[in-house]
Amino acid sequence: MARSTEGARLAVLIDADNAGAQHLERLLVEIAKYGTASVRRAYGDWTSTQLGKWKDALLAHSVQPIQQFSYTTGKNATDSALIIDAMDLLHAGNLDGFCLVSSDSDFTRLAARIREQGLTAYGFGERKTPKPFVAACDAFIYVENLAPPVAPAKAATTAAKPALKPDKTLDRLLAEAVDVAAGDDGWANLGTVGSNLSKLAPDFDSRTWGYGKLKDLMQAHRDYEVKSRSAGEGKNPSAHVRHK
């Protein structure tokens, strides 16, 4: 996952034609980890009954609906409107990053352009999102991982984590991230490992494998040992990981 940037000003731009209203609340909670959603806009043809479910969600979370008529069948005018607004916001120079909410590959170049400008591009979409768009973002979060909070009464029954099944892709990513961060003694700071994982795979998220934190995922993996270690005299201990 990408690092949290306290106080960062973010623009949340939602392709309502290609995103579900049911995810909005959890989406904004997730975005709050990375900064403040200073700009909140949702694009679509609001005269269409297909976007009816968005109305209450937009009002509840102070998201501005941007009207874009579908002028021609088969042409996505909503994407164009979102991209034009994003470029205006980008050149205004008042933001630190963008949250692009869509599963549409049409925003691949926009995400890349945001990064070229030195700002952070966060993507949010379904697992069906094309890989080029995912790769163009600094971090990409799958909305399927934004599970609703567990009710206190049910917390005890859901405490047990699922068994971690063999996964070649996960094994490769973890091995590369740990190897690059490891010192001469083989131990790697878990925070550095997390940063490496974000660079290797923008869509890496321990929640994909059923674990809320990277530490829990590493502890569950058969190939790794996790313990708290001090980086030096007088320094507070922190989580470290190494190959068994």
Rank of each mutant, 00 (worst) to 15 (best):
Q68M: 13
G52M: 02
S48M: 01
W54Y: 08
R40A: 03
Q67G: 09
T47I: 00
T72E: 15
Q50E: 12
Q50Y: 09
Q68G: 13
S70V: 03
Q50S: 14
Q50R: 15
K55A: 12
D45S: 12
T73E: 14
A42P: 10
L58F: 09
T73W: 06
L59W: 09
S70I: 00
G44N: 07
K53I: 01
T73Q: 15
A57L: 06
K55P: 00
R41A: 02
L58G: 00
Q64G: 00
G44E: 01
L51T: 10
W54E: 03
L51N: 05
Y43S: 04
I66K: 14
S38F: 07
G44Y: 02
V63R: 00
A42W: 04
T47W: 01
R40G: 08
R41I: 03
V63M: 02
Q50I: 03
S38Y: 07
F69V: 09
Q68S: 13
S62R: 09
R41E: 01
K75R: 13
L58D: 03
N76W: 04
Y43Q: 06
F69C: 02
V63Q: 01
S62M: 08
R41C: 04
A42Y: 04
P65D: 00
A57E: 11
L51C: 04
V63C: 00
Y71L: 13
G52N: 10
S38W: 10
T47R: 12
Y43I: 04
N76G: 04
A37E: 08
H61S: 02
Q67E: 10
Q67M: 11
W54M: 04
V63W: 01
T73R: 15
W46T: 06
Q67W: 11
N76E: 10
A57S: 13
W54T: 03
F69A: 13
F69E: 06
A57N: 06
Y71H: 14
T72S: 15
K53D: 13
R41V: 08
D45I: 08
A60D: 10
L58S: 03
Q67K: 09
R41N: 03
T47S: 14
S62L: 07
A57I: 07
T49K: 07
G52I: 00
Q68K: 12
Q50H: 12
Y71E: 09
A37H: 03
D56H: 01
Q64W: 14
V63K: 01
L59S: 05
L59C: 00
W54Q: 02
D45N: 15
V39N: 10
I66R: 14
Q68P: 09
A60K: 10
W54H: 05
T73Y: 10
D45A: 12
Q64E: 15
L59K: 11
L59V: 08
